[in-house]
Amino acid sequence: MELRSPVKREDLEKLSVGDVVYVSGYVITARDSAHRRMLEYLKEGKDLPFEIKNAVIYHCGPLVERRNGEWVVISAGPTTSARLNEPTEELLNYVDAVAIIGKGGMEIDFKGKAVYLSYTGGCGALASKSIKKVKEVHWLDLGMPEAVWVLEVERLPCIVAIDLRGNNVYEEVRRRVEENYKRLVEKV
C-alpha cells in the first residue's frame, strides 16, 4: 500500500490493521512542546506556519546536522506516542483527516479522523534512508528534538496499527497480555 501526503479521507479508508504502508510526501514532526504550541495557536485562532489539516504527523525528534548551510537528517525514528495522547485528542478537533506515525500506540478516540501507523522504534538510522530532505523547520527555539521539522520522505515503511474503523493492534495485544498476566501472577 502507498500513502501520499496531503492525505485524504478516502486514502485512509483503504488502510487496514496489519497492512504495510509506504508513506511519501511531507511529514511534520511534532513532540510534546510542539503540540502544546500548536494548540495555543489554534485556540487563539492564529495560523500555524505549516499545514496540519491533512498532514502526516510524525512523533519524532530528529537528530539533525547543519552542513554547508543546509539541514541534514542523520537519524529520525519515532518517539513514544502515548506521551501525546492528551494534546492529540484536542488537536484532532482542528484537522480533517490525518495519519499519525509513531511507536507504542495511543489510547485515545481518533474520532474517525486519523489512522495510526507504527514505525519500528529505535530505527532512526534506517528511517533517514527514506528522508530525502528537510523542507522547513519551525519553532527551533524549542530545541532540536522539540522543533517542528517538515521532512520530505519517500516510501517510509510503516505498519497500520490503528485503522479508521477503530481496529487496534495494541488493544488486541493488551487484552491477551492481561489474560497472560493473570495466569502468570497466580503461579508466582
Binding site: C60, G61, G124, A125, L126, A127
Partner: peptide, 16 residues
Amino acid sequence: ENVEYAKLKGIPICQD
C-alpha cells in the same frame, strides 16, 4: 537492518 545500516553509514542507531 537498522543496526547494519547505522554501522555501514557511521550514523547513530537511534535519533534518541
